[in-house]
Design a protein around this nucleic acid. Structure first.
Length: 283
DNA sequence: AAACAGTTCAACCGCGTCTGG
DNA sequence: GCCAGACGCGGTTGAACTGTT
């Protein structure tokens, strides 16, 4: 009695939830080697997973820059609008919502938005209401700065290649959710890695307290004085106030340099010039 | 307190597309 | 042009969590 391909894989590869240790292995590997061939990642990283599973874990959970927590009203509006236009093209929708994954958006749609859209007979009116909610600068001061743009659809603006300021401002701000363990240190030569001397909770820290300590010690308001981070600190500050970040916060500051370069500052120092894409991080 | 129902979300699966040999 | 392997995407599943009775 033969096995289906998937059953063969099942025999060989571990399935189910990822343990913190597996996450750590994958993160360490990607940090040191970047993204190459996913099929070789589990082998090289010492994981008993298939490459597909590693890729998914990285993209949906471990990848730097991911936003976590609730979707904002602006994001909801974007999803509703984009879904109206694009349909179930979750990856396309996700491209317009930096820091959100297609999987996350898809889940959110099925959990919340589909019902809401279905419940309302006047879905169109709802969409219109949400349409470019992101442009409501009066409310949060972080979105569109030209009223002429407000009447245009998100897609029109995105397609036009214009920089949508509101869109820009909902960039994830690279809140590196439990991404850099304490074993990564920032020095004059940039990011360096030390083999962990002890296993903490698998992520290199204990969640709640250290997050609070870190945020406190980070001098958040001081960061706000830098030009590019004015809005950022406000945004994240708002988010923090609303309790939307319920994850260990290790890394707060970013500014986009060009398209993909992030300027990483860690309070007592900074480094820049590592390249990050949806699938990987490269120095 | 226990049982059940409903919800959420991480992960899996299968299929289509891309790419290199 | 064909084929195999890798990748990307959308649909689906099921474990964990939460709320209700």
């Amino acid at each position: 009695m033969g096995l289906k391909p998937s059953e063969k894989l099942t025999k060989k590869h571990k399935k189910g939830l990822w343990s913190p240790e597996e996450d750590q292995r994958l993160k360490d590997y990607i940090l040191q080697h970047g993204i190459g061939c996913w099929s070789s990642v589990p082998l090289n990283a010492g994981l008993q997973r298939n490459g597909k599973s590693c890729r998914l874990r990285w993209i949906n959970y471990l990848r730097p820059g991911l936003k976590r927590g609730m979707f904002s009203t602006q994001e909801e509006g974007m999803i509703l609008t984009l879904h109206q236009t694009l349909g179930n093209k979750w990856s396309q929708i996700a491209k317009h919502l930096p820091g959100r994954t297609d999987n996350e958006i898809k889940n959110y749609w099925h959990s919340y938005l589909k019902k809401r859209a279905g419940d309302s007979a006047d879905t169109e009116a709802n969409i219109a209401k949400h349409k470019f909610a992101i442009s409501n600068t009066e409310e949060n001061g972080s979105c569109m700065n030209q009223s002429s743009k407000a009447s245009r659809s998100v897609l029109e603006l995105l397609d036009s290649g214009e920089q949508v300021q509101g869109h820009e401002n909902i960039l994830p701000r690279l809140v590196f959710a439990d991404w850099l363990p304490n074993d990564y240190t920032v020095g004059q030569n940039g990011l360096s890695y030390q083999q962990p001397t002890s296993v903490k909770n698998g992520f290199g820290f204990t969640a709640a307290k250290q997050q609070g300590d870190f945020i406190h010690g980070f001098g958040f308001n001081e960061v706000a004085s830098t030009s590019s981070s004015d809005m950022y600190s406000q945004d994240v500050g708002d988010v923090m106030q609303k309790g939307m970040l319920d994850f260990p916060l290790k890394f707060q500051e970013q500014s986009a340099l060009g398209s993909n370069f992030m300027d990483y500052s860690a309070g007592d120092g900074s480094f820049s010039g590592f390249y990050m894409s949806n699938s990987g991080i490269f120095s």
